[in-house]
Design a protein around this nucleic acid. Structure first.
Length: 226
DNA sequence: GCATTAACCACAG
DNA sequence: CTGTGGTTAATGC
């Protein structure tokens, strides 16, 4: 099958683009493809971390079990690497990853990945780049959650989905209200009420899980104001 | 005190 | 799973 060959894969990351022919062949020999369905757990918090995972296609939520409730840290959209911090940072996973759509992934042996980092500076640079972007996102997310109130946090979550995940103001929320609450850091009841208020004020159009942001400016004002 | 905010609970589609 | 209403606890005038 053509897509089994890394060289011809359509979902290469910026890092993998820097690999030469021999390196791609090496990757191919140490890369195992699998599919996950919506809702499948890809790896679990507190379990032994094993491989580097590359998401070819699909959405994955990164979540941590807190003392009170589940917290969604971010949503990863393929093509991207998944779980680099938790594989290199500690032996134990510090977070779980769950598929929120059906997901195509490659499991890459950590050894192979490490060899590329050592031997190929450009590869390492691209990985570093990704990790830095992720860290910046996390700083922002952290401050926002600590200082905003409910409406601001939900508005932020919606803008995050629209801009970073779907690149569109109109999309189908890939989660339940409960999960949206885990993302925006509020209860499912609050999500319901807040969404209905946004709808009433004509800031969004809402039909079940289909949502369209009508007044982007107002929504981002709500997000900024907190 | 009173108002606001948001979580929790219970119940019903 | 979702929406709604009542209750309650914390916080800030």
């Amino acid at each position: 099958m053509l897509y089994e060959i890394c060289e011809y894969c359509h979902f290469k990351s910026a890092a993998v683009e820097t690999l030469d022919y021999d390196e791609l062949k090496e990757l191919e020999g140490n890369c195992f493809k699998t599919q996950f369905s919506k809702g499948d757990l890809i790896f679990k918090q507190d379990a032994l971390s094993s491989n580097i995972i590359f998401i070819r296609e699909g959405l994955v939520k990164i979540h941590i079990k807190g003392p009170e409730r589940e917290q969604i840290i971010k949503i990863n959209k393929g093509p991207t690497f998944l779980g680099i911090p938790t594989t290199f940072g500690d032996v134990i996973n510090h977070y779980s990853a769950t598929a929120i759509t059906s997901v195509n992934v490659c499991f890459i042996s950590t050894e192979t990945f490490r060899r590329f980092i050592y031997s190929n500076g450009k590869f390492a640079y691209e990985i570093l780049n990704d990790l830095c972007k992720c860290e910046l996102h996390t700083y922002k997310y952290c401050v926002n959650h600590l200082q905003k109130q409910g409406p601001g946090r939900l508005a932020e979550a919606l803008i995050y989905l629209a801009n970073d995940i779907f690149d569109s103001n109109s999309f189908v929320i890939p989660m339940t209200r409960h999960e949206l609450g885990d993302l925006a850091c509020c209860s499912r009841e609050s999500v319901s009420r807040l969404l209905n208020e946004l709808k009433k004020d004509n800031i969004i159009h809402l039909d079940g899980k289909k949502i369209t942001i009508l007044n982007e400016k107002l929504l981002s004002q709500i997000s900024k104001r907190g």
